[in-house]
Design a protein around this nucleic acid. Sequence first.
RNA 1: GGAGAUGUGGCUGAGUGGUUGAAGGCACCGCUCUCGAAAAGCGGCAUACCUGAAAAGGUAUCGGAGGUUCAAAUCCUCCCAUCUCCGCCA
Length: 437
Amino acid sequence: MLDIKFIRENKDIVQVGAKKKLIDVDIEKLISLDDERLKQLKEVEDLRSEINKVSNDIGIEKDQARRMQLIEEMRLVKEDIKQKEEKLKSITEEWQKIMLKIPNIPSVDTPEGPDDSGNVVLRSWGEKPQFSFAPKEHFELGKSLGIIDTETAADVSGARFSYLKGDLVFMQFGLIQMCLDILNNEEILKNIAEESNISVNPTKFLPIIPPVFIKPIVQTKMARYMTPEEHYMFPNDNLMLIGSAEHTLGSMHMGKIFEEKDLPIRYAGYSTAFRREAGAAGKDTNGILRQHQFDKLEMEVFSLPENGIQEQNFLVAIQEYILKSLKLSFQTVAICTGDMGFPDTRQIDIEIWMPGQNKYRETHSADYTGGFQSRRLNTRVRRSDGKIEPVHMNDATVVAIGRMLIAILENYQQEDGSIKIPEVLRKYMGNKEFITK
RNA sequence: GGAGAUGUGGCUGAGUGGUUGAAGGCACCGCUCUCGAAAAGCGGCAUACCUGAAAAGGUAUCGGAGGUUCAAAUCCUCCCAUCUCCGCCA
């Protein structure tokens, strides 16, 4: 969330920012509510102060009669506090509700727009592959090769589940291993940064396998996928399944204060992601594009505020480096105000060209949330001058398994229905060249 | 799942219901000493919020949430986590 002080001092910016994100909030109402809250808070604190003072006096008062009188007086003050506290509590609750609804403010370079039609292509890379035959969609290829089985999965688990089999499994782990090797190599990271003219520390990404369950209260602090319908809930255990490793990576340092010299901290988290896809009924129902369950390698970075944008650019550069290694044609897109995530101040997506579908499809996202999540999580940094402030947080996809497999299947398909394995992946797949029946 | 124990500041570790936001130690920062370092000495060292231009003052926080009390780290209830033993298990 945003800092209430910041909101008070920049109410126009906050109001306009929410409007651009098409989110309806009444900042004026929030501020008048905040005035009321502060007034009430002061009253309660003054009364408490009185009790504290007099209680000390009572402790050293020798005169029994005087003592009893003070105790009686304080008993009355306590009644008064109780009433005022209740009022404060209800005001604070309403205040909090509005605070949680205020989205992060879009960065100045975020394009304005109502929905994905307002997104702006920043750059594109690679030639779209030309085929001498009509390219197939991934589910046809996967089915005929016997490496994707959604039908059995539908019987066993329902729609939007799949069995990935054989070489596709090797490909999944090959991709993950390849990417971990990159993220664990400072030399490569340094080169990626230099080639994109990004000035960041080449600190490696520490690989993490995080929990896939999260407490709902913590999920709220991550401020992503806010409606309960988007999550698998386990009320008996008061737990829910994560929709992304981001949720349990970003919350790893709740309540912690970093030292300035320890930043940036970079993680590469591998986990299964679980999504109910409640709002996507009937959309992308074929194959493995939109699944309830998929594996994903995700980057999460904690940095100094002034380095946040550079970190995001760096994460995007890493994503692009990986796609270039795989020789996949893609475009990098600045997501507009109406399409971006609630906690994001700047969102950049990558879409890979999918020949079977004859369009670009989103495969990667890079979300810069600034201090928005960290303020809720209470993850901060102590600057060298002693000042403490929220750290800035970035998260970004490395490989989202379903979609990356689709991209490879569709782009590397051959006329006979076999799949040529991208060269960089072969060493992770027993030097195999093709996936065949 | 059963039995027991424990949760205090960055770490360690005291703490009888009444100037305890919390002794002592370590770590850290500053100063003195030194050519420099070490050692020693002196001082400083939690976070959030409120008031204030500032100095400063106030409130809250001793795993978490409630409660008792004029007053709670200290008493009560519930929850959570950790440790040990047993059981089960990849």
